[in-house]
Simulated scan of single mutants.
Amino acid sequence: MMLRLVLSALISVGSAGAVFAQAERPQVSQCQLIAEGLPAVQYARFTPSSIGSALPVTPVQLQEDVVITFVGHSTFQIDTPGGISIATDFNGWLRTSRIPDVVTMNKAHSSHYTLSPDPGIGAVLHGWNDAAPGEPIKHQLTVGDAYIRNVSTDIRSWGGSFEPNGNSIFIIEVAGLCIGHLGHLHHELTDAHYGEIGRLDIVMVPVDGGLTMGAESMSKTIERLRSALVLPMHRRGPIIDSFLSMFDDSFDKEISPHKGVTVSMRTLPKKPLILVLEGV
């Protein structure tokens, strides 16, 4: 299956004029660097107390603003201050009018990927290894002002067995933010996974109650990641209520009337916030 990204020292230009580069010496992850300093490091945030309804998506972006829009199911569109557009778990039919510069995919089922993406997409990143099934795939891609990498996890097959390294947690580092999409996560993470992931300021988490992981296991994962902003996705039925009920008062919870949120390092909530965007 095609992966339209450049390898080694090659460089190409995408549909929006963005430069795509996957070099022999990839960019160092700022999210991992900070995480490796734990437990000595202390986070400093210059923040208001909440961001949900106070910061709807606006057409005007500051140089530090990242706009995250819920498109549907597990697809979010992430628009960076530099004008790069990234779509997560892209299936081709849940999309906005803009052709993304980069799309990520996972293969749990067909609503998380497409084998015929729009040819105008600059980079298509599969969360599984086409060339060597069962082996981890490694992405380290710089596109404009965004650095995109992944952490491989296992995936449960329809028969109930596990396929090694069939899913990826994709991490987008932009404007000082560490943004993670858990994909179709089917098992609790190990210490090694948490070390690879590093710090996540924003995390997109499936809340289907069992198609991925049960609410209790998923809530444990979120509590350990301790992200400032938690964006539920992949909802099935009323499961969102049981998911929210797993968290105590150390988390704020908000139902937003907006499909998206504008966020920066300055505006991250001081207290972890579970923000349910409109449409979820």
Rank of each mutant, 00 (worst) to 15 (best):
A146N: 02
K138D: 10
A132G: 02
P39F: 05
V151I: 13
V205H: 10
D191S: 13
L115A: 14
H139S: 11
P238S: 05
E196F: 05
V60I: 14
A192W: 03
D249W: 04
P272S: 04
I84S: 08
V203W: 10
H184T: 15
L3P: 00
K253R: 06
D248Q: 03
L5H: 02
Q63R: 15
L5E: 12
A40C: 05
L277Y: 01
L33E: 06
L55T: 00
E36H: 06
I99N: 13
G159W: 04
G159Y: 03
A131Q: 02
G82A: 07
I86C: 10
T80F: 07
A9H: 13
P164G: 05
H234T: 01
M2A: 14
G214D: 05
F170M: 02
D252P: 14
T114Q: 10
E278V: 00
D79R: 09
P59N: 13
S110P: 07
L33N: 08
E223L: 11
K138I: 14
G144S: 01
P59W: 12
M105L: 14
L3T: 04
G176Q: 03
S85P: 04
H187P: 05
S49A: 10
H193Y: 09
M1T: 14
L62V: 00
E173G: 09
L277I: 06
K270T: 12
D201L: 06
D208K: 00
V41R: 05
T221R: 04
P39H: 11
W93H: 14
L7S: 12
R235P: 00
F162R: 01
Q22N: 13
Y43N: 12
P59I: 09
H234P: 04
V67Y: 10
V28D: 03
M204H: 08
F170H: 04
A23C: 09
T190D: 11
W158N: 14
K253Q: 02
D248E: 13
A9N: 15
L38R: 12
F170W: 00
I240T: 08
A175C: 09
I34A: 05
G134I: 03
G279M: 00
F90V: 10
A131K: 02
T190S: 15
H187Y: 07
R149M: 01
R226E: 15
V207L: 05
R235A: 00
H193P: 01
I255P: 03
A9W: 15
M1D: 14
T80K: 08
V280F: 01
M1I: 08
R149N: 06
I121P: 04
